[in-house]
């Protein structure tokens, strides 16, 4: 009996030491990404992941001197999968909000853009709560836009929730939706500038209320991995300083996507 106890104790302590050592020594960082949120994260026709988030992930990996792995994960399971250790950090245009901070630890922001509504050209003259009453508005489920819409217009509009932004675009062109609410850059590059987005326009003000839209998009890590957050923050500063960030930004946008 005593022997077994000793063996178990030894095994447990080895596992414990290995676990602690593994947490401190990041040789390889697995990033969870979405892959259906152009231009930040999308899948090319060849089936490869590409986009602003993906390039930032690669640049951060280089800056940290670690190997990286990209894991595509659907949005509404992206935090649970992080907590279940399917990957170590999320780079998926995730806004830093109080709600999410309860579950995960965020780095500093790596970009910040406002949210906006989109409607059919000329469909809404002037934006107001009354003007959009009863309209079918598409949002991506579990996003800050979903929460903002539910909290502010939940009783006034008919909210349709989608698993990916791409599905919302499909239904907008199919005529099932009157409006969309999403990140302005995602809407502009992922929809309005595309052939299928012709005939649609932005409507209403830039939405930046910190209560819902947070302080920009950050990288989410598990709460215990403070060292990883620190390293990622240092890496963000590094790519901001050495021009890598600007190079990536200019590949996708013609304006300052980092914000103030």
């Amino acid at each position: 009996m005593k022997k077994i106890t000793t063996v178990v104790a030894v095994i447990l302590s080895i596992m414990f030491i290995a676990g602690v050592a593994g947490a401190k020594d990041w040789k390889k960082v697995r990033f969870g990404v979405e892959g259906a949120y152009p231009p930040f994260s999308f899948t090319t026709p060849e089936g490869k992941l590409d986009g602003f988030d993906i390039d930032i992930a690669k640049a951060l990996g280089k800056a940290m001197g670690v190997e990286i792995d990209l894991v595509a994960q659907d949005w509404d399971g992206i935090i649970p999968a992080l907590l279940a250790k399917k990957y170590d950090a999320i780079i998926a245009s995730m806004s830093i909000t109080e709600d999410r901070k309860k579950k995960v630890a965020f780095t500093n922001k790596y970009y910040q853009t406002p949210a906006k509504f989109v409607c059919k050209k000329g469909a809404i003259k002037e934006f107001s709560k009354d003007a959009i009453k009863g309209k079918a508005v598409g949002v991506q489920r579990a996003t800050i836009h979903d929460k903002y819409l539910t909290d502010n217009y939940g009783k006034d509009v008919n909210i349709k929730r989608y698993g990916t932004q791409d599905e919302a675009y499909l239904d907008m062109t199919a005529g099932r939706l009157d409006m969309l609410l999403a990140d302005s850059v995602a809407l502009s590059d992922g929809f309005l500038k595309k052939p299928e987005g012709q005939g649609f326009q932005f409507i209403g003000p830039d939405l930046t209320d910190e209560k819902w839209f947070g302080v920009g998009a950050g990288i989410a890590c598990r709460k215990g991995d403070t060292d990883l957050v620190k390293q990622l923050n240092a890496a963000i500063d590094k790519i901001r300083a050495d021009g890598t960030y600007k190079k990536i930004q200019d590949k996708y946008f013609d304006f300052n996507v980092y914000g103030e």
Partner: peptide
């Protein structure tokens, strides 16, 4: 496809509270 059935309800609640 945007219908709130029992699973849809669970997905909404999950997405709001991150409690799958």
């Amino acid at each position: 496809i945007t219908i709130i059935d029992i699973t849809g309800a669970a997905r909404i609640v999950n997405s709001r509270f991150y409690s799958p």
